[in-house]
Design a protein around this nucleic acid. Structure first.
Length: 331
DNA sequence: AGCCTTTGACCAGCG
DNA sequence: TCGCTGGTCAAAGGC
């Protein structure tokens, strides 16, 4: 199989696998009360399947096969051993120039990219080494950026890995490093564990963000519901008033990694309450009471900071004298 | 001689 | 169709 086809196949498989994993997660969350998580997962799944479908239908690949100007690009033959021409002025398949690098632009744009932010070491103004050897092949001033973007590819020829380094204007000691392609030279093997951990961490963070958003909406609903009451049970927490009832099953409360960035929110949170809400493990099966305490604490912080005007307050006094599970809202 | 960086030119995508 | 922009190429020069 030609390297091009192999690469396309890898992308398709990766996208379909991701879609499958997300669908499994979605199945677990099929519940009207978990709309936020369902919505988030649905968007991710659709995006994965769209990418895979356009690859399989040839939408994305058709550009590579189309004749444009004097350059005619063909898909790589399945067992290409044709000699490779170096001159850019000849009518050649540009994807076969110099080694088997996937060098045409369309392909590069489709490569899965991974973005990282790294900080320069103290006293230095260059990004720290990432343990791999790179060779710089270009530098360009990017519109709207004070610093030029630098382009690197794997120092081992015949490897399609690339990276771009962009110094961030507002934080000159921080660099945005975008990795493209994968190392076919084996150079990356020693770093594969770290790589896998990074990917897992990203996925974990994505799920945690969805969970945190959901948790936030519960808190909001709880403290703003008129005449609310709640019940703890071994299966979860139930909030209710004269009009509605909603349940938070224990399974909704998953630990939020402390490494996660705080989720974006339009909830008027200050830093302290954000930390309180997301920087700790939310209640597990053995700690449903802490949900109520947490909600009361969050409300208190909002109120003290004068940032919220909830129509009805959570009844902290009743909570304190609560041997039974029911708490009325004093509004 | 071989490898590297620099830098202007070129090419493809996109609005 | 055209102009702008990001990404890449490749010649030139340095080490």
């Amino acid at each position: 199989m030609g390297e091009n086809n192999f690469w396309e196949r890898e992308v398709v498989i990766a996208e379909l696998t991701k879609g499958k994993e997300l669908m499994l997660q979605l199945q677990k969350h099929f519940d009207p009360i978990k709309q936020l998580v369902c919505q988030y997962l649905a968007v991710e799944i659709l995006s994965s399947y769209d990418k895979a479908m356009s690859l399989l239908n040839g939408t994305a690949l058709s550009g590579m096969m189309k004749s444009k100007g004097k350059e005619i690009i063909h898909p790589a033959p399945s067992s290409s051993t044709a000699p490779q021409l170096e001159s850019p002025h000849l009518l050649v398949d540009s994807s076969t120039k110099s080694c088997d690098r996937p060098s045409n632009y369309r392909k590069r744009k489709m490569l899965a990219r991974r973005k990282e932010y790294v900080e320069a070491r103290p006293g230095e103004e260059v990004p720290p080494e990432d343990g791999l050897s790179w060779r710089k092949y270009g530098q360009k001033l990017i519109l709207g950026s004070k610093y030029p973007r630098e382009y690197y590819r794997c120092a081992r020829r015949c490897c399609g890995a690339t990276k771009m380094v962009q110094r961030i204007e507002t934080e000159p000691l921080t660099f945005e490093v975008t990795y493209g392609g994968s190392h076919s030279c084996g150079q990356e093997t020693k770093n594969q564990n770290e790589e896998l951990l990074a990917v897992q961490q990203t996925k974990c963070d994505e799920v945690a963000k969805g969970a945190a958003e959901m948790f936030e909406s519960y808190i909001h609903k709880m403290v703003s519901t008129p005449n609310n009451s709640y019940n703890n049970s071994s299966t979860g927490v139930e909030f209710s008033n004269s009009n509605s009832v909603f349940n938070i099953p224990n399974s909704d409360f998953i630990p939020t990694p402390t490494s996660s960035p705080h989720p974006d929110t339009d909830f008027p949170l200050d830093n302290d309450s954000l930390t309180l809400l997301f920087d700790q493990d939310v209640p597990d099966n053995s700690g449903n009471d802490s949900l109520a305490a947490l909600a009361a604490e969050v409300y208190k912080l909002y109120e003290e900071n004068g940032k919220l005007n909830f129509p009805h307050r959570y009844d902290k006094q009743a909570e304190n004298s609560r041997p039974s599970n029911n708490v009325g809202d004093k509004s």
